[in-house]
């Protein structure tokens, strides 16, 4: 199965990636090969099978409802590219 330039653009936008023309071409080419690989799945008969999303099939553990986290803002914001007055700054968000 091949993939159109439109599809590539659509997916790149969903994933918030900006691809150069060369990258788009490369993506389309490698997608063709990858899709050929994954399309081999279609030959398997999987009717009557429950999908398996985890090898472990038990229930998830639960946490007590206790506040365990302290304010670490100063420490954590050392990694932040842009902060002011304790807030993370991003270009204007238009609602």
């Amino acid at each position: 199965m091949s993939i159109s330039a439109n599809d590539i653009a659509y997916i790149a936008n969903l994933a918030r990636l900006q691809l150069s023309e060369a990258e788009k071409e490369e993506a389309a080419a490698s997608f063709a090969n990858i899709l050929a690989l994954i399309d081999q799945m279609q030959s398997a008969d999987t009717s009557d099978l429950e999908p398996l999303s985890h090898a472990i099939e038990s229930s998830q553990p639960l946490r007590e409802d206790i506040v365990t986290e302290k304010n670490q803002r100063e420490d954590l914001q050392k990694n932040a590219p842009k902060c002011e007055k304790g807030l993370y700054l991003v270009p204007k968000v238009i609602e």
Binding site: Y10, I11, L14, I38, M41, Q42, A44, T46, L49, E50, P51, L52, S53
Partner: peptide, 18 residues
């Protein structure tokens, strides 16, 4: 993405079961 989930993701999870 919309329209491909069943054919790819769900199918792959079923193969995982196999």
């Amino acid at each position: 993405s919309a329209g491909y989930y069943d054919a790819y993701y769900l199918k792959a999870q079923k193969i995982r079961r196999l």
